[in-house]
């Protein structure tokens, strides 16, 4: 297993490099902006990537992916990817993730667990692309489990092994999701309003960058005050 860890504390941060290496881009009194840089040709069959992101109370962490990730043909071995996220009271985490492209023959199991304490905020992007151009794309099962203030906020299994089943993705090859936890967005934004404070904006599309969720992500980032954290 390859562990990448970013833990932002009031008195500093812990950075652990794995297949993805954290690089500090910017630092402020209560904020940290980190890029995750691929150190190898991710993601191959048998790889097990684990990313741990933790933000202590009152701190703000912004994560950027430098590039999208390509999951290559698994050659019969699954690749695993686990995200473990912990956002404390009054803390924020914004993860500007780039697309995960599933090549023909790729087989990926991904889990995302996030625990957000009351008053904490989490904003993240998840773009899955089935296949590089001309391919039908690989398989992925994504298990997402997010809790807010100790209560389940979003629990979802997205199993794209049979993506063409009616009602799954149809002819679309891209599924793009922006998830916000700890704040309720403006009524005008097209999104699912979760029962707990939070929302999910989702779109399906043909190409990676035509789903129009960039604007939603920026709007929600502004709403939780991400602009004010710098410097």
């Amino acid at each position: 297993m390859s562990l990448t860890r970013v833990h932002l504390r009031q008195d500093g941060q812990t950075l652990v490099a794995g297949l993805l290496a954290p690089r500090v881009l910017q630092r402020g009194p209560t904020c940290l902006e980190v890029a995750l840089v691929a150190t190898n040709a991710t993601l191959l069959g048998g790889d097990h990537v684990r990313i741990e992101l933790a933000v202590d109370a009152g701190m703000h962490l912004v994560i950027r992916d430098v590039a999208g990730t390509v999951a290559y043909h698994s050659r019969g071995r699954e690749a695993w990817w686990d995200n473990e996220i912990d956002v404390a009271e009054g803390a924020s985490l914004v993860w500007r993730a780039e697309p995960l492209v599933l090549s023909q023959g790729a087989s990926v199991r991904r889990t995302t667990h996030a625990t957000v304490a009351e008053g904490g905020r989490l904003l993240m992007r998840d773009t899955l692309v089935l296949g590089r151009s001309g391919e039908t794309g690989g398989d992925i099962v994504c298990d997402t489990e997010l809790t807010y203030a100790g209560r389940p906020a979003l629990v979802e299994r997205l199993d794209l092994a049979d993506a063409t089943l009616p009602g799954m993705l149809g002819a679309h090859r891209v599924i793009d999701t922006v998830t916000l936890l700890g704040a309720r967005p403006a009524a005008t934004t097209r999104a699912f309003r979760l029962a707990q404070p939070g929302a999910v904006a989702r779109a399906v599309g043909i190409r990676a960058h035509d789903t129009a969720l960039d604007a939603t992500f920026e709007e929600w980032a502004t709403q939780i005050g991400a602009q004010s954290w710098r410097g």
């Binding site: 979802e156 299994r157 799954m168 993705l169 149809g170 679309h172 989702r202 399906v204």
Partner: peptide, 17 residues
Amino acid sequence: PQQIPATTAPLMELWQH
């Protein structure tokens, strides 16, 4: 309750929404 499956159909969900 935590054993309840959570499998989703994205397009169907968007249509219903």
